[in-house]
Design a protein around this nucleic acid. Structure first.
Lengths: 138, 138
DNA sequence: TTCTTGACTTGGATTGCGTCCATCGTAGGA
DNA sequence: TCCTACGATGGACGCAATCCAAGTCAAGAA
């Protein structure tokens, strides 16, 4: 994660305590995909005065820089995936909304023939798998 | 679409003018994927007093019955896809948000090995392709 | 070290999308 | 035709996210 902070500094980021804390929170919970509010709650444990607006701003900047991926599954709150540098797909629980990273075989982008692209310049493809997690299934 | 109305009646639906109009709107614009607000606007052209709550209720019921599919691409408003009986995926313009139905080769569900399911009972998979439509690319 | 400045943060207001609820209306069976 | 339970209404509400004007501060300059 210090890598991340270095990369950000290299891009001309002013390194404030708020931004540092948000980056640390994303790093700490690398296995989970936090909502903006969850990021804010965890950041506030270390920096009580941090505002939600700043968390939103910082997350948005990290997404723009490609350091973090935004995952919006259904109509719920967006979740933020710090695992942006390793391509993967998502498995979402229809019960509780938690997300797992998965690695399916095959690559979806190549599965779209030219005659199915309708003149679009297709740049990305995402596969979302839906199901019930063990906890919600019981 | 009269098919749809028949099916709904067969399921014990009370056939009100509001529900009929919502169904007609979805049928009319079969090529597009309308937001709830767009459905409401078009329905209101024929039935000015129809309320947004009724449109939301009716759309929700149609989704529950499997007659319509809910498509939530990014953080924007959900869109409703009347083409629920023909499996397909979606190609979304990152510029304007419009959606096209596409038919990729291969089937995503079979692409997730058992050791990548983490105890989930996986029931569905959706592929979303992202790109710029011809209008937004120019 | 202190100064300076513009980028960053703040929090309260606001927007967008969707749901809830008490009340009224009406489709369709008796 | 009448009854009544199911559906419609619309205004209040909730949640996620954004906006904005004012205050704060990181980091380069001197």
């Amino acid at each position: 994660m210090s890598d991340l902070l270095e990369r950000l500094r290299g891009r001309g980021w002013r390194l404030t305590s708020q931004r540092r804390v948000v980056a640390e929170v994303l790093d700490d919970g690398e296995h989970v995909h936090l909502t903006a509010d969850e990021v804010h709650a965890r950041a506030a444990e270390r920096l009580p005065e941090i505002s939600r607006a700043t968390v939103y701003n910082t997350l948005g900047e990290l997404v723009t820089l490609g350091e973090v991926t935004e995952v919006s599954t259904d109509g719920r709150a967006k979740r933020y995936d710090p695992n942006a540098h390793h391509p993967h797909q998502h498995l979402v629980c229809t019960g509780c909304g938690t997300i797992r990273d998965v690695h399916p075989t095959g690559s979806p982008l190549t599965d779209l023939p030219a005659d199915q692209r309708f003149g679009f310049t297709v740049t990305d493809a995402a596969v979302t798998y839906w199901g019930l997690c063990p906890a919600c299934a019981s």
